[in-house]
């Protein structure tokens, strides 16, 4: 390695180090703003701006979906296992929106603590399998839980 090469190497390393520091500082400063959504725990602990457009995300609690018969109003509860938030939504839900699946809601939290959603997105998990496999897995889970309950 000649002196010229070493010089160039130092220049590049210096650049990379500087940019790394800059990006790290930016990410640390942004922190929660980079997160796509707030969790129900953050909402319950008032770590969110009131009456301002935010996103919330969590698992749709089974049995909590209440569809209105004469309008597109839907009420449901999202939870992160610790806390839960009531959501009110008017509009068409995505196909993947079901009980026990993750969902991201866009809107604001009113003073009663209800999340008024203007938009509901379904989050997909990283699992891919055929229907038969899913049914077999659910059956296996059921029989295990039955055995435990006995």
């Amino acid at each position: 390695m000649t002196v010229l090469h070493r010089q160039r190497l130092y220049i590049v390393l210096f650049f990379i180090l500087g940019i790394c520091i800059a990006i790290t500082l930016a990410i640390v400063a942004l922190k929660d703003n980079v997160n796509h959504y707030f969790t129900p725990t953050q909402i319950a602990n008032n770590q969110i701006p009131l009456n301002k457009k935010i996103r919330g995300g969590g698992i749709v609690v089974p049995g909590s979906i209440q569809r209105s018969t004469d309008s597109l109003n839907t009420n449901f509860i999202i939870s992160d296992g610790v806390n839960s938030v009531k959501v009110a939504y008017e509009g068409i839900l995505p196909d993947l929106f079901t009980e026990n699946s993750a969902s991201v809601v866009v809107g604001y939290v009113n003073t009663q603590g209800v999340f008024i959603a203007k938009e509901v997105l379904a989050k997909h998990d990283s699992y891919y399998m055929p229907k038969e496999v899913k049914q077999a897995m659910d059956k296996a889970k059921e029989s295990i839980s039955k055995q435990i309950n006995r």
Binding site: N35, V104, L121, H124
Partner: peptide
């Protein structure tokens, strides 16, 4: 679009 319900979101 069919899965999430949107073409684009500004997530990380």
């Amino acid at each position: 679009k069919p899965t999430w319900g949107t073409w684009w979101v500004w997530d990380a």
